[in-house]
Design a protein around this nucleic acid. Structure first.
Length: 276
DNA sequence: TCCTTATGTACAA
DNA sequence: TGTACCTAAGGAC
C-alpha cells in the first residue's frame, strides 16, 4: 500500500523496533552480498522522503551515531513490509531483506529497489525529489514554482515526484475531489491560494495516514452514517470519495464517479462536483 | 488453476 | 507511449 504515508510509517516502525544490533539476511538471495556486509552491524536511523525509505547502518562498535551506509528501499507498486514480534517465522523465498533482533523482525518483499548506497548517493536522491508534505523541511513554494509554469494537468503534476514527493494515485484523486478541482486543469491555472489549500490538506491527510496506516479522506459530515446511507468499507482499507469507485454514486451529488487513463494510471473523479 | 489488477518507476523507441 | 519489473489477492472458471 505504498504512498508516502506508508513509507514514513515504515521509517517510524523500523526505528522503533530494530534500532541497534540487527541480524541482516536476504532469504531470496538478491541482496545477499550487502546483507552479509551489514549482518551484525547496527541500525542507526530510518529516514523517509516521499516513497523512498532509507535505513542507516553503522558499525556496532563505532561511537559515532551517524550511519556510514544506507539501504535504499523503494516499494514500487507491489512491495510490502511485514513487521512483527520475534520469533520471526521461517523466511519464504520471496523475502528480499530480513532484519531481526531479539524482539522484532521486518521482512521486505517485492520492492522495486533495495540497494546499499553511500551518503553521496542518498543526497543525490533527495536532490531529485520534490518537497514532501510529511517532512518538516518541505517548502510548498518550491512545488508551486513548478506547478505554476506547467501546461501539464494538475492530476499529472501531483503524481510527479520531482514536483511533490509522496503523493500517489489515491491521494491525488482524493485531494482533487476535496477541493472540487477538475483534474484536467493545467498546473499554470492553479492559483496560489488553491495550491496552499491543496498542500495543507495533503499534509494533514498524509499525517493522519501515517498515524492510522491507511488512507481516509472522507470528512466526518460526509460519512455514510452522517449522510444516512448504509456503512461501507472500501476494499483498499480506507474510506474515500472517488478512488476506485468508477461507476458508483458520488457521496455528495449522487452522480456517477468516472475513471480514465492518465499517464498509465487510472484517474478517478466526479465530473459533476469537480468543476473548478 | 488461470487471469486480472494494484496505493510505482525507469527505460526504450 | 509502451513495456519490463517485482508480489499477492481476488475473481472467474
Amino acid at each position: 500500500m505504498p504512498e508516502g504515508h506508508t513509507i514514513h510509517r515504515l521509517a517510524q516502525d523500523y526505528a522503533a523496533r530494530l534500532t541497534g544490533e540487527v541480524a541482516v539476511s536476504s532469504p531470496q538471495g538478491k541482496f545477499s552480498d550487502a546483507a552479509a556486509l551489514l549482518d551484525g552491524s547496527a541500525l542507526r536511523t530510518a529516514d523517509a522522503h516521499g516513497k523512498h525509505l532509507f535505513l542507516g547502518f553503522g558499525a556496532l562498535t563505532d561511537p559515532d551515531p551517524e550511519p556510514t551506509s544506507w539501504v535504499h528501499v523503494h516499494l514500487g507498486l507491489f512491495g510490502k513490509v511485514a513487521l512483527g514480534d520475534a520469533p520471526a517465522p521461517p523466511p519464504t523465498d520471496t523475502v528480499r531483506l530480513r532484519l531481526a533482533n531479539a524482539t522484532s523482525y521486518a521482512d521486505l518483499r517485492g520492492p522495486t529497489t533495495c540497494a546499499l548506497i553511500t551518503d553521496a548517493e542518498k543526497a543525490a536522491l533527495h536532490a531529485r525529489l520534490g518537497p514532501d508534505p510529511l517532512r518538516p523541511d518541505a517548502d510548498p513554494a518550491a512545488a508551486y514554482a513548478r506547478v505554476r509554469r506547467s501546461r501539464t494537468t494538475i492530476a499529472a503534476l501531483l503524481m510527479d515526484q520531482k514536483v511533490i514527493a509522496g503523493v500517489g494515485n489515491v491521494y491525488r484523486a482524493e485531494v482533487l475531489f476535496r477541493h472540487r478541482i477538475d483534474p484536467y486543469r493545467a498546473g499554470r491555472d492553479v492559483t496560489p491560494g488553491e495550491w496552499d489549500a491543496i498542500w495543507a490538506d495533503l499534509a494533514a491527510l498524509m499525517r493522519e495516514g501515517v498515524r492510522n496506516n491507511r488512507i481516509d479522506t472522507v470528512r466526518p459530515e460526509h460519512t455514510p452514517e452522517a449522510m444516512g446511507r448504509p456503512p461501507r468499507v472500501d476494499d483498499h482499507g480506507g474510506e474515500v470519495y472517488v478512488y476506485r469507485r468508477a461507476g458508483q454514486a458520488c457521496h455528495l451529488c449522487g452522480g456517477a464517479v468516472r475513471t480514465a487513463g492518465l499517464a498509465a494510471r487510472n484517474l478517478f473523479w466526479c465530473p459533476a462536483c469537480q468543476t473548478h
